[in-house]
């Protein structure tokens, strides 16, 4: 996520459609079974599969983001976002807390960019 390559402004008003879309699918997930209550239930097998959705999707977003730089896979010390990302993730695992992990990761990013 580099400010020079931020494509956000290209969405224009469709950004609002995207926000409405995200809101709609989220409320559907949240309220769906409560609204249908009694008439339908979710098979245990499906529930078990859905359990893995957050881990799979979050990793699918974050890993390509840190393992590439300038559009190529980059597993080296030069890739400061990879090192800082892994550092932040380790803090999250050890401290079980979001904020220290983000602060630690940001500090690591700046330290690496400064010293490398």
């Amino acid at each position: 996520m580099n400010p020079e390559t931020n494509h956000l402004h290209e969405y224009g008003w469709t950004l609002w459609l995207i926000i409405f879309g995200m809101a709609a699918v989220t409320i559907l997930n949240r309220a769906g079974f409560i609204l249908l209550s009694g008439r339908f239930s979710l098979p245990p097998k499906v529930q078990r599969a859905l359990k893995y959705a957050p881990a799979a999707a979050l990793a699918a977003i974050a890993l390509p983001d840190i393992f590439t730089s300038h559009g190529h896979i980059d597993v080296s010390l030069e890739n400061t976002r990879l090192i800082a990302g892994l550092f932040g993730f380790s803090i999250a695992v050890l401290a079980r807390s979001t904020l220290p992990s983000i602060i630690g990761g940001m500090l690591a990013l700046h330290a690496l960019q400064h010293w490398l």
Partner: peptide, 17 residues
């Protein structure tokens, strides 16, 4: 470079899962 905070946030949210 606070944009990177979003990526770090995703990694932090991934941990408990």
């Amino acid at each position: 470079q606070l944009e990177f905070a979003a990526t770090l946030g995703i990694l932090a949210l991934l941990a408990p899962f």
